[in-house]
Design a protein around this nucleic acid. Sequence first.
DNA 1: ATTATTTCCTATCTTTATTATAGGAATTAT
DNA 2: ATAATTCCTATAATAAAGATAGGAAATAAT
Lengths: 132, 132
Amino acid sequence: MMITTKGRNALKVMLDLAQHDDGNPVPLADIAERVRESQKYLESTVSQLSQKGLITSTRGKSGGYRLSRPVSDYTVAEIITAAEGSLAPVSCVSGEVTCENACNCLSLPLWKELDEVIMNFLTSKTLADLLR
Amino acid sequence: MMITTKGRNALKVMLDLAQHDDGNPVPLADIAERVRESQKYLESTVSQLSQKGLITSTRGKSGGYRLSRPVSDYTVAEIITAAEGSLAPVSCVSGEVTCENACNCLSLPLWKELDEVIMNFLTSKTLADLLR
DNA sequence: ATTATTTCCTATCTTTATTATAGGAATTAT
DNA sequence: ATAATTCCTATAATAAAGATAGGAAATAAT
């Protein structure tokens, strides 16, 4: 599975934030209750979204999270990538791996194309699209 | 990762069989040596390809494996699916899982579309395409 | 018939990745 | 001061992937 619970949760949180944006920070406890996931588990995912600048956090009492940009500015690709680290369908194209046989591998061009197809699709979809 | 070593190996084996088809069955030991993978590990993958009818096995001395159809008749999608079981990018669309929230999930349509995009691409590529 | 070579089957082990929980430190509005 | 919140680190539990081992069954070649 290319997209795991972590990536799906990230998207759920972003959608929840979009739907409950009243100007005030939204506490994670509220989000967790609505999306029915353990707050503790969501913490790590949300923390990554925050570190990558996709959401803005406010600490302390009456703190929480807010989207940092308009919903139409977020692509699904960047949200999933922020949570999963990569959305490469095959390790060969994830950058981490170097295959000594790459230069004469008959499959590699296929994997690269596949990666592009997926990227193009997920980059074309914004958070706003999902809310419609 | 949606496509793992197993799926990549399946494709490697199919390509190797295509390139060494002289009418006689090709022993797995030969294939393993050429693609530089452990024969024992390849066995399970090759066995799946055989059971799904993608290749034909001949047992006993001077036995081995052969492609059962012309190379242009194999789509990459079916080869990977035979080896991996599924090539769904998200468990939500793999069939195995039933999510009680499916009916009002904002993300599900996206995952279904993504699955389609991937399927369309991998179904459009044949083994013959990779050999060119 | 015997033998060598091969696929086939089943079991198990190791390693890695994912999923999840726990405890508490730091921050800040009230 | 207090209560509510994010933030940080560690670790445990579960599942998936990757790999190995031993031997049974089949069959061509001798």
